[in-house]
């Protein structure tokens, strides 16, 4: 039996604006195996962001269901979703979205702040991750003191700190130069394989899809085609 980590089942999202109904997503279904690295590509307005938001449980589908590690998320309330995101998901954003007033360590520890983990254990974990990502000499620096690539690596560490089942990466290389971008993608690939974490990445950059296992092409809210990369 195949161990599926993500199951997207018949998900639609409709926005109503007055009398006009806009179908952002129409009957999307796909499944990802544990440790699979998937890319979602498509022109703007194709529904990539909506799909990412629904996978990230910060938006709800109009119909359909999303299962992460077998847990159905569509009917959860705000607090349940918060706990779910905290335990199961990791986020990597295009603009890094680190918190400016906090140093690298504190930023990485943010998801653990709402768990009962003791401070010392938390610090050990975040430092180990940052060292592993080559930021051992950047622990106490603020985001404004770090380069773009370093900031994104801090964000990757933050996404990993809670041992998530699924990492959602929204244009992770969009704000980086191509060399740094490629390093980040290689890093994600390594995490995928080593830690058996499923990653869904939205990208415009087709170069980066060569590291992925699966590419899902979206167009007008539908899956246009789904291809496996060898």
């Amino acid at each position: 039996m195949i161990d599926y980590s993500i199951k997207v089942h018949d998900v639609s999202k409709t926005y109503k604006s007055g009398d006009i109904r806009v179908n952002a997503l129409e009957r999307i279904s796909f499944m990802l195996k544990k440790g699979e690295f998937a890319a979602i590509v498509g022109p703007s307005g194709s529904g990539k962001s909506t799909l990412m938001n629904i996978l990230g449980t910060i938006d709800k589908p109009s119909s359909g269901e999303v299962y992460v590690d077998g847990i159905a998320t569509a009917k959860m309330n705000g607090d349940e979703l918060a706990v779910f995101r905290n335990k199961k998901l990791g986020f990597i954003f295009q603009a890094f979205n680190l918190i400016n007033g906090l140093d690298a360590e504190q930023n990485v520890e943010l998801p653990l702040m709402v768990t009962p983990m003791p401070n010392s254990e938390r610090r050990k974990k975040s430092d180990a991750l940052l060292v592993q990502l080559g930021l051992g000499n950047r622990l106490k620096l603020k985001p404004s003191q770090l380069s773009g690539g370093e900031q994104q690596r801090v964000a990757v560490a933050r996404a990993l700190i809670n041992n998530p089942a699924l990492i959602l990466a929204d244009e992770p290389t969009g704000d980086l130069d191509s060399k740094t971008g490629e390093e980040v993608i290689k890093l994600l690939k390594k995490i995928c394989k080593d830690d058996k974490v499923t990653i869904v990445m939205v990208t415009h950059n087709l170069d980066t899809t060569k590291y992925c296992d699966r590419i899902i092409h979206l167009k007008d809210g539908r899956i246009e085609k789904e291809e496996l990369v060898k």
Partner: peptide, 16 residues
């Protein structure tokens, strides 16, 4: 606002 959005995405509840 944006920071609140980040914190909520990371699992902060309303009461946090």
């Amino acid at each position: 606002t944006h920071e609140i959005g980040i914190l909520k995405a990371l699992g902060f509840k309303n009461r946090h």
